[in-house]
Design a protein around this nucleic acid. Structure first.
Lengths: 240, 240
DNA sequence: CGCGTTTTTGAAGCCCCTCAAGTGTAGTGG
DNA sequence: CCACTACACTTGAGGGGCTTCAAAAACGCG
């Protein structure tokens, strides 16, 4: 049984057998969580660290007027809220988007790992920096890219991230995101996301239908997005 | 001579005398950097870790069409790019906004600190998480807040962050950000930022003039911003 | 089939952008 | 002391991209 979390860390930093065994032990308690289920709610004290082993999830915040903003998509291998030390009050929610398999590591165990396993710490720190890079890319998109560029850029990001963990089959990818979810991530309305997707389809760049993303022309898509290969390779493809 | 970096970490995690001494030694090489000077450029291999001791800086990215997006403001105590392990290619720039005093810690030294000082690691990890929280808040702003809310929210964030490190004098704060810089951070045009600032001034919430921010009515400003006190306390006011 | 959710399409409107010009405000040098 | 320059700030008019409102079509699932 492969472990997406370990695979992801291992792809960047060569973990020792001991480190791998420790992580496997921590993930042994993984449980199944249905779709659309909150793992963490805003206002809760921070509990254990969650690791997504299968399925998709997202971070989001709800504003007073009811608007929702998704701030991250989580896929297998990603983990949430690596808090250390004293408990915090969560300032956002995390919910599954699909049925998922989720492991939870108690905070004390996590603190112990950080204090005693330098290589593992390095791997986790790297994962944290990658996530931060993605957040910055989102800010750039929302601040300075048009709706078409923004949608195309997100599709590039998700496609490459998914490909890096072997979720794709050729140019196809199971992408279980409704247009409503996409619009909440992109800061657009779902009506407009729909129109943008139509344009991308008509231009022959990509198609998203029935939860399946088909990349027809990755070069054209990346051009439309103003997608930076550099950022890709460094952040997401590195396997040395 | 106080050290903003140590003060900031110490405010959250009680550092030992040894830890403080180590950090002081690392910061001994601090140098003065003029305003509008790049500390790090996109495409560079990651060098040392920079710590801002005095002055302001920002992270930013330039898009192909020349548009600029600022992804973070850095003030005294903040540090940039805590990379561990192998060198990375930077995917963004960091530049001073004012004359600044900057210390640099070689990456190997940093890695050594992380591997040997658990409490210090915990403090640095916390700082990293705080920065991530700010990034998420920016995404929420850009995605779902109007221009007035967005400007007000940023002013709240900067005012509270500055107050936490004692940069304010009562309701006043030296804020060396031109309207052009603000617009590049907010994803707006400087023309529109100007109009929004006028509205905030006329409504009696705040005034920004000649590099000085005056908060006339913090309650009204926070209301206009939809500013979350919780987020404040957790991320920015915590002093225990 | 029947129901809820998602997707699609149309029409009208507003928020913010673009373009343009004019007004400070420092700093520099004659 | 004033001309000159550079830069930031301010204001106006018009346009466009995305939103809002509305409703129909398609899909998935008991």
């Amino acid at each position: 049984m492969s472990n997406a979390f370990i695979d992801k860390l291992n792809a960047h930093v060569a973990l020792s057998r001991d480190d791998v065994a420790l992580l496997e032990a921590e993930c042994a308690n993984a449980r199944d969580v249905p779709a659309r289920h909150d793992l963490i709610r805003e206002g809760d004290p921070s509990g254990p660290l969650f690791v997504i082993l299968e399925g998709w999830a997202c971070r989001y915040q709800i504003l007073s007027e009811g608007a929702r903003q998704i701030t991250a998509f989580l896929m297998p291998g990603d983990c949430c809220d690596m808090h250390l030390g004293a408990s915090h009050i969560m300032d956002h929610n995390i919910a599954t988007l699909t049925d998922a398999r989720v492991a939870s590591i108690p905070r004390e165990r996590f603190g112990h790992l950080i204090a005693t396993r330098p290589i593992l710490t390095q791997a986790l720190w790297w994962a944290q920096l990658v996530d931060e890079g993605v957040l910055r890319a989102w800010i750039v998109s929302m601040g300075r890219r048009s709706s078409v560029e923004r949608v195309a850029h997100l599709m590039c990001e998700l496609y490459i991230r998914a490909r890096n963990i072997g979720l794709n089959t050729g140019d196809e990818l199971e992408l279980p995101l409704t247009q409503i979810v996409l619009s909440d991530a992109l800061g657009l309305t779902y009506v407009h996301v729909n129109r943008v997707l139509r344009r991308l389809r008509l231009e022959g760049a990509m198609r998203l239908r029935g939860g399946v993303l088909v990349i027809n022309d990755i070069v054209k898509l990346a051009e439309l997005a103003g997608f930076d290969e550099q950022y890709l390779q460094r952040k997401l493809k590195r396997a040395a």
